[in-house]
Amino acid sequence: MSGLLISLSFGISYYSGKTRYVDCPFCLEKFSKEPNGTWIWIYPGLVGCGKKCPLALEALRRFQERFPEVKSSFYFLVTDPSESEEDIQSYLAYYRKSLSIQALKPESEEEIRFYRKLGAYLPVHPSLKSRDEHGTQFFLVPPNRKSMYLLPKLGEKEWIEIRNEIDSITY
């Protein structure tokens, strides 16, 4: 299986340019309730974002629409730990009309440090959040839940290559 992950990492890196592959120390436990064979897509964003997040969530929706046979779960990583559950659900309600997406909140300092290290923006001061500045990369967790791919973008070219790599892996 590790050879297949290296192959997936190489394939995605080759076609999308700056993709990185990292070990995920908590993904196995965090996503243990996801069905076997499911690929987990995570987009880190800010509740209320009106710039980058809508475009990113639309890219996920289009991937799901284009490749419905790929077993996928979608998560919106809430990058501001002070957001209320009500605000999170209200923000995601619009997107849930066309994408089955769940909120994902870091539950430990380990997770927060991990996501910060990967470039997910977690505001430490309200003025930073008000500028609506955060990263735009996607995180992809394969079915083995041991690693995470960092995808700088998710467009047509990346969809096709990711789909081809997913097809090449046997579970």
Score class of each variant (00 low, 15 high):
F74K: 01
L46N: 06
V47A: 07
G48F: 00
K97H: 11
R62M: 15
R96F: 06
K97P: 02
T79C: 14
Q64G: 00
R96Q: 11
A103G: 13
R62T: 15
V47S: 06
S100I: 12
A103I: 10
S73C: 04
D80L: 12
L60S: 05
Q89N: 14
K97V: 07
S100Y: 15
V70E: 11
P54Q: 04
Q64F: 09
F67C: 09
L55M: 11
P68S: 01
P106C: 13
S98R: 12
L99A: 05
F74A: 07
D80K: 09
Y75Q: 01
K97S: 11
P106E: 10
D87A: 15
G50H: 14
A103T: 01
I101F: 10
P44K: 04
K51S: 13
P68F: 14
S73W: 02
Q89R: 12
E107C: 02
E58A: 15
S84G: 12
S72D: 01
G45M: 04
P68W: 15
L77H: 04
P68H: 11
L77M: 14
D87T: 10
V47C: 10
P81S: 08
L57A: 07
C49G: 03
E107A: 12
D87C: 09
G50E: 15
E58R: 15
G48Y: 00
E83A: 05
K52L: 13
E85S: 07
L104G: 09
E65S: 06
A56F: 08
D87G: 03
L99T: 08
P54E: 05
E83N: 04
V70H: 08
S82Q: 10
K51F: 15
E85T: 09
E85A: 11
K51V: 11
L92N: 08
A56V: 04
L104R: 01
L60V: 11
V78M: 01
F67D: 10
L55I: 10
Q64V: 09
L104K: 00
T79A: 14
P81K: 07
D80Y: 00
S82A: 14
L104D: 01
A103D: 05
S73D: 03
S73P: 00
L77Q: 11
V78A: 10
C53L: 08
S72I: 07
S100P: 02
C49F: 03
Y94F: 12
S82T: 12
S100V: 11
Y94G: 06
P81R: 14
Y95H: 12
Q64M: 13
F63N: 03
K105F: 06
I101S: 03
R62P: 00
S72L: 05
S90T: 10
E83K: 07
F76C: 01
L46K: 07
E69T: 10
I101H: 06
